[in-house]
Design a protein around this nucleic acid. Structure first.
Lengths: 173, 173
DNA sequence: ATTAAAAGTGAGTAATCGCTTACAAAGATA
DNA sequence: TATCTTTGTAAGCGATTACTCACTTTTAAT
């Protein structure tokens, strides 16, 4: 990975997250990265290739968020860590997560698969705690986590910390 | 409102909802509407004007969804109707609602204001039912409604009817 | 030092973008 | 019927789009 390659990825992430994929031209990316436009196509083939390179690089970030939850054996801790997920995302990663949420709508990328490990962990946790509908409980919780994350990244008026605390008491944690 | 004007609005809504605003060209809209491209600019000024015309026409749809809830005086019925909102959206209006969700990310349109009446109605309902944190309860429920709606429009694997039923039992309705 | 591959540039491409304009057809008013 | 306004078209505008290509520079291995 060359220095200029990283510059391109960084610039593209920033612009895609702020303006969207279609609204960002390769010439803008090149200009922000301080690079000739041709270099983008040399390294990434085309504009979509650039996007996929960003997404591939960020896969670890999702995995890293999940691993701490999935490894946890204590069911109450699993639920607790899941609820606290949105507050654990680093400010320096905001662009990446914003891009993820944006792409779910701009290109119709289904995020169900990515959430599967989290859903499994939560389902098992609810089973251990003898909830009546563990799978639905898991899906509901994921719905909330997704909603809070979305609110944070969109700069909604919702207070995330307050909402997270509220949810923790709801689940008696 | 001319016949061709409506054709334009209909075609634009369809394309904006499917491909997104930036990814849809005015020439595509004109072609689908069976109209010369210039007519779009005659009637709506520019591409953004076309978007705003669609949004303005659809404002009533949001209002109509809310009025039934806000008019309700029985607090349990308020919550019930709010939870059932996602199942009350007509299939023929899918494009419009999909566009709404898309625009929240593509252009950064804040939907907090639009949800305000719903939030007020829900907060009052929770107050009447002596919930400890009525405002947070309202926000949480809105988070859920938004999530369900989003899942339906994106064609997620989540089963909306099942989830709605599940929530109704959770709120003892 | 030689050489081959990789990295990088800058000028260019055809196609498409949002939009304008000159003009014709259709309606409405008198 | 004559006139004025609205509705509609077709061609074309400059700018920008994603992308290519001929070329130079840098890197790295022999």
């Amino acid at each position: 990975m060359t220095e200029k390659q990283e510059k391109i990825l960084q610039a593209a992430l920033q612009l895609f997250a702020k303006e969207g994929f279609h609204a960002t031209s390769t010439s803008k990316v090149a200009k922000l990265a301080g690079v000739s436009e041709g270099l983008i196509f040399r390294h990434f083939g085309n504009k979509e290739g650039l996007l996929h390179a960003i997404l591939a690089e960020g896969e670890n970030k999702l995995r890293n968020l999940f691993v701490d939850i999935v490894m946890e054996s204590e069911p109450k801790q699993v639920i607790r860590k899941a609820i606290e997920m949105p507050s654990r995302i680093d400010v320096s990663d905001y662009d990446f997560w914003k891009l993820q949420f944006k792409l779910k709508w701009e290109l119709e990328i289904n995020s169900d698969k990515k959430m599967e490990p989290l859903k499994m962990a939560l389902t098992n946790a609810f089973i251990k705690l003898n909830y009546e509908s563990p799978e639905l409980e898991a899906q509901l919780l994921i719905l909330f986590i997704d909603g809070i994350g979305s609110a944070v990244l969109k700069g909604s008026s919702l207070n995330p910390k307050e909402m997270i605390q509220f949810l923790l008491t709801k689940y008696e944690l």
